[in-house]
């Protein structure tokens, strides 16, 4: 019988990560050096298990041999453990404060969700905009590093174990025991998807490098629990890009335990909601 390995039991050393980084940089022009080290190591360990590889050297061999394996690897690396309506209090603040003010002041509302990954934040945002009655004057720009991630995000089928937690989050968000997320959901054979109507004002774009991404003037940027996966240096760069793309008085949300205090551009933001980490761009 095959021993099922647990990713915690796989030791990934610094030298293995160095070799892998080198390979991905030279063969696939992809820089692993932007990722925070612990979660990077855990994700690499997971790819070893999924692909039934014994060592990081075997992983490197497969990456050198096959471009399609690289895409598969990239997808496996971006698996996120998020939920719909994570932190219900954030979504209430988004609905009651941000949406209200932005829709009062603007004819069109432009929202950017960088690192959209598996799409949970897109769907939560679209549902809130729908319920606030302002979805038709909104556009959600969802970006991630490459086309494969975007494709995966677009056609995503979610597994049933996410359902209960998400329904509970939604009820907490609505503060209504009878609120039913199910009205947006379509059951499938192996899980569930969302009503296509939810995606009607979502535009997907690849963000591989800054100069290839032309859109600016966002009213809101929702970037929760992305920075935690990057090094401080890369986070600082990302914040710079976001700051530039946000319009004056635009809103910016990060995860409730994320931290921008060490970033140069932090001084351009005023904290509006300390518990949900929502900022307003007040500097230039």
């Amino acid at each position: 019988m095959k021993h099922v390995r647990n990713s915690e039991e796989i030791e990934i050393g610094i030298s293995g990560i160095r070799k892998l980084t080198e390979t991905l940089k030279t063969r696939h022009n992809f820089d692993l050096g932007i990722y925070a080290s612990t979660s990077l190591k855990r994700r690499v360990a997971k790819t070893l298990i999924i692909n039934e590889l014994a060592t990081i050297d075997e992983l490197i061999d497969r990456l050198e041999a096959s471009h399609s394996f690289f895409h598969q690897f990239m997808l496996q690396m971006t698996v996120s453990g998020t939920e719909f309506f994570r932190d219900p209090a954030f979504w209430r603040y988004f609905r009651d404060e941000i949406c209200k003010i932005v829709s009062r002041n603007h004819m069109r509302i432009k929202i950017w969700i960088p690192g959209c990954s598996t799409g949970e934040e897109i769907i939560s945002t679209a549902i809130v905009l729908t319920e606030a009655g302002i979805y038709d004057k909104s556009v959600i720009i969802a970006t991630d590093f490459n086309e494969k991630i975007i494709d995966n995000c677009k056609n995503k089928e979610y597994s049933n174990h996410m359902l209960e937690m998400s329904e509970n989050n939604y009820r907490r968000f609505r503060e209504d025991e009878g609120a039913d997320l199910g009205i947006y959901i379509e059951k499938t054979k192996n899980g569930f998807t969302f009503d296509q109507n939810i995606f009607r004002n979502v535009e997907y774009h690849v963000y591989d490098r800054e100069e290839n991404f032309k859109i600016k003037g966002f009213n809101v940027v929702i970037c929760r629990n992305n920075f935690i996966y990057f090094t401080a240096k890369y986070q600082e760069m990302l914040l710079e890009v976001i700051t530039k793309r946000l319009s004056a008085n635009g809103y910016f949300a990060i995860g409730n335990k994320e931290n921008i205090s060490f970033c140069k551009d932090a001084s351009k933001f005023t904290l509006l909601n300390a518990s949900e980490k929502v900022y307003k761009k007040t500097g230039l």
Binding site: S37, S39, V79, S80, G81, T82, R86, N225, I228, G255
Partner: peptide, 23 residues
């Protein structure tokens, strides 16, 4: 350790957080 995050200790004596799946 904050609610709904994993808490990692990293080299250089810093914390890192993660929302990866429950263990």
């Amino acid at each position: 350790a904050p609610a709904n995050y994993h808490l990692y200790v990293e080299l250089a004596g810093k914390f890192a957080l993660s929302t990866e799946e429950a263990v």
